[in-house]
């Protein structure tokens, strides 16, 4: 468990590093993408937005829709109350579907601010930027559908308003047997909470501990012999 944890740290750090260094290229590229002509199939109005809704195009390796599923997800601060250290919440944090299932999500926002139900990691040939996205304005309901690919996988679902994921709006969507569990999904998995770096006074601390233990040990030895 521990080794796995530190492996993940390395991976995460590596990923962030890559994201950082290639930022300039990404920026230019994605802005073209975002501001360009990729907004077909998008609903965008006073209720909120639905991005990449797909009810009929099958992903590769899916010959037919395996099942039709419907989830109703409520969002708001009320749903965070039972999760320690969280402020925002969903009514459900774990979703399961068979491979090639068609999933309809109805997203109800009970707060007076925007919230999102954003799923990442879908194939980019079918879903622009690999995501399915619902965004509901204060008190509004939006819904959309997507068809999951044939592979077993666990997808990240979150609200990407700054700090909403960190403060509770994080869920996982498991297809088939699923992939690796995600960290810090409220009421599902534990927080990661990396230890902070050792303070610079650590050397001093080592010295003091050594001093005390030496005193204790030699005191014992001397006491026995005299």
């Amino acid at each position: 468990m521990r080794a796995q944890g530190s492996l993940r740290v390395c991976l995460l750090v590596a990923l962030l590093g890559i994201a950082n260094t290639s930022y300039a290229q990404h920026e230019a590229h994605e802005q073209h993408d975002q501001h360009g002509d990729s907004h077909q199939g998008m609903q965008f109005d006073s209720k909120g937005m639905v991005m990449n809704s797909n009810v009929d195009v099958l992903p590769q390796n899916c010959s037919a829709i395996s099942e039709d599923l419907a989830f109703t997800v409520r969002a708001g601060t009320d749903y965070a109350i039972k999760n320690a250290g969280r402020i925002f919440g969903f009514s459900q944090y774990e979703f399961r579907a068979k491979p090639c299932a068609r999933v309809t999500v109805t997203f109800i926002n009970e707060d007076q601010v925007r919230h999102q139900w954003m799923l990442h990691g879908l194939p980019r040939y079918l879903y622009a930027q690999g995501m399915f996205h619902l965004e509901a304005n204060a008190g509004e309901t939006v819904s959309g559908a997507f068809i999951v690919p044939a592979d077993d996988a666990t997808y990240l679902v979150h609200c990407d308003i700054t700090q909403h994921m960190e403060k509770g709006m994080k869920a996982q969507f498991i297809v088939g047997a699923g992939g690796e569990q995600l960290w810090s999904v409220p009421s599902v998995t534990a927080d990661f909470n990396i230890e902070k770096r050792m303070p610079y006074g650590a050397y001093m601390l080592i010295g003091i501990v050594a001093l005390i233990s030496a005193a204790l040990i030699s005191f014992r030895l001397l006491g026995k012999n005299s």
Binding site: A19, E30, Q31, M49, M118, G130
Partner: peptide
């Protein structure tokens, strides 16, 4: 200002979008 979508430039980036 009230914006929509992701808070970062894109999913692979950790950089905040220009409105933030």
């Amino acid at each position: 200002p009230k914006s929509f979508g992701m808070a970062t430039e894109n999913f692979d980036s950790v950089i905040a979008k220009e409105l933030l």
